[in-house]
Design a binder for these strands. Structure first.
Lengths: 219, 219
DNA sequence: TGGGCTATTGGTCGCTTATCCAATAGCATG
DNA sequence: CATGCTATTGGATAAGCGACCAATAGCCCA
């Protein structure tokens, strides 16, 4: 249909593989991991399904690779490199709680459930978790040496913050948004608690962000 | 196959409907909501798939009903009626964090993800959430009047505790268990924080539980 | 005891999926 | 310009699903 009348286009295997993976990752973020079908990916690229099979003989491998790709590319934007630790943490929490992270939250919820059925995905999740933790842990340790964070143990605080993120993300598919500050700022508040900051410190830091959240997202 | 040589069994519609629903709920808890297929339910009951269609003309309705059933029956065992508020809260947190709640955690993770695709399931989830919250809120308010809990607002504490439960449940399908106290006791610790208890109070209450967790589940 | 209501069967249909394979045609190399 | 490699196609296959329906047979009641 989509390409039968079009002339064939011949690309280098590396280029095609990359194109397929990027396409699958886009589907993963937009529509969900179970929507990554040979036909859906092929249609998106204007090629025939058989070609996808040629590059990914077993479809499940493509799904896992797409999750990894999507998780990795979102991670880049998640923890800023510049700014003092408090600012960086505030930016991190605010970003997670903002609508720009909705598709990322959906992706993780999706993967965490799907990993119930496919052990290979569970293994991939674990790898991505470790990478995420490493990144946040560095930020926390920066804050400890700078004397602005006071966690019992940096790693324990890191684990708690990510669990808060997952708890927050669990509600991402809710029909109507929950206008409850303890919900909307859960990640910020848990981070505050886990880092043993004075109550309100991190919420204030979020509010003071230069390109911070618009009033719509304040409590 | 399973029943073609068996003689027919004729049951009252109410009884059969109930049987089907119970069977679907069992599948939901054991194998996941997407495993509730006409054929799977029928095989479990030793009847033909067509019979399931007869009682549930649209399969999605059965899936939703099964989720509601499973969530409701698990709720009964979740919050005890007897004991003082601190004990009841400790029992609640300990149960959530214990392996007996694994299938419940899996069910909610499952439903929360699936609700992305089926709005009717999202609506059912919301109803079950409200019922869960009502139950926990009563416990929290009991503790406030008894002078043992000191939340800023009981409802805010309730929301935070459930978000902690969802955050904890997100890791239920992990391959190897995470031997990190801040993970294993996340719900207890968040409850402690949300209720503004002295650090360690709730963990101590959990440890002091009469039929408390075995040493295997202590940090 | 016989008749009728209806729970239950058994089969079909259409749709979607992944996987496999022989035939085709783009493109670089000689 | 012609040849060969291989990226790409098109089609076939089998398995899974929900939905539908006429035929059957269990069981209650007259």
């Amino acid at each position: 249909m989509s390409s039968s009348d079009r002339p064939r286009f011949r690309k280098s295997p590396d280029e095609r593989r990359e194109e397929i993976l990027a396409s699958a990752a886009a589907i993963a973020l937009a529509d969900g991991l179970e929507r990554i079908t040979l036909r859906a990916v092929a249609a998106r690229l204007g090629v025939r399904p058989g070609l996808i099979t040629h590059y990914y003989p077993v479809a499940e491998d493509l799904v896992i690779a797409a999750f990894v790709r999507a998780a990795a590319q979102e991670r880049e934007q998640l923890i800023a490199a510049e700014g003092d630790p408090m600012q960086r943490m505030a930016r991190f929490a605010a970003r997670i709680e903002s609508p720009v992270s909705s598709s990322l939250s959906r992706l993780w919820l999706n993967a965490r459930h799907l990993s119930r059925f496919t052990p290979a995905l569970a293994a991939a999740i674990e790898v991505q978790e470790v990478l995420d933790r490493e990144r946040l842990l560095m930020l926390i340790e920066d804050g400890v040496t700078a004397g602005v964070f006071f966690p019992e143990r940096p790693f324990a605080a890191c684990v708690r913050i990510f669990m808060a993120i997952d708890g927050f993300g669990a509600y991402i598919n809710d029909l109507r948004v929950f206008t409850e500050p303890s919900y909307a700022h859960f990640v910020t508040d848990v981070a505050e608690w886990a880092l043993r900051l004075e109550p309100g410190t991190l919420r204030a830091a979020v509010a003071a962000l230069p390109d911070g959240p618009s009033d719509a997202y304040r409590s």
